[in-house]
Amino acid sequence: MAHYYRLFVSNFWSENVWLPPNTTWADVAPESSKIIQHTDHRHLFYPLPMALVMLALRYLFEKYWFTPIGLSLGIKNSKPKKAPANVVLEKAYATAKRWKHKQVQGLAKQLDMTERQVERWLRLRKGQNKPSTLTKFCENAWRCLYYFCSFIYGVVILWNKPWLWDINECWNGFPHQSVTSDIWWYYMISMSFYWSLCVSQFFDVKRKDFWQMFIHHIATIVLMCLSWVVNVWRVGSLVLVVHDSADIFLEAAKMAKYSGYQKICDTIFAIFTVLWIVTRIGIFPFWIIRNTSIEAPKMVPMFPAYYIFNSLLCLLLVLHIFWTYLILKIAYNSLNAGQMEGDIRSSSDDYSEDSKSQEKPES
Rank of each mutant, 00 (worst) to 15 (best):
K206E: 05
F202E: 01
H38R: 03
E90Q: 11
F66V: 01
Y146E: 05
G260A: 08
P47Y: 02
L124D: 06
V156Q: 07
W185Q: 07
S293Y: 13
R123N: 14
Y153C: 07
L315F: 14
G338M: 05
V88R: 09
S181L: 14
S196D: 08
R42H: 10
W25D: 03
L89G: 01
L107N: 04
D27W: 04
Y306S: 12
V104N: 06
F61E: 02
I157R: 00
V222R: 03
K298I: 08
I152P: 00
F272R: 08
L124Y: 07
S355H: 06
L313T: 07
Q212C: 09
V235A: 12
F193M: 12
D247T: 05
H320I: 07
I283M: 06
M188A: 12
S132K: 07
R6Q: 13
D166R: 01
L315P: 03
Q262S: 11
A96L: 03
M255V: 09
V9C: 05
T292D: 08
F214M: 13
L275I: 13
D266P: 00
L319A: 07
F12D: 01
R280E: 08
S32Y: 05
A246Q: 06
V28T: 09
E15H: 08
I283Y: 12
D166M: 00
R280L: 08
R58I: 04
L328C: 11
N16K: 14
L226A: 11
P49M: 05
Q201M: 12
L107Y: 03
K161W: 03
V232A: 15
K356T: 10
C225M: 13
S14Q: 11
C138N: 11
Q358G: 10
V232Q: 15
L223V: 01
F284W: 10
K360T: 12
Q212W: 11
W195P: 00
I281V: 14
N333T: 09
V222A: 14
F322N: 11
N333G: 15
K76I: 00
M255I: 09
N129T: 11
W233Y: 10
F202I: 10
F174V: 01
E139H: 03
F303C: 11
M302Y: 14
I69G: 00
I215M: 12
L313W: 10
S357M: 14
G260V: 05
Y5Q: 11
I288C: 04
V318I: 15
T114E: 04
F269K: 02
Q37P: 00
V199F: 11
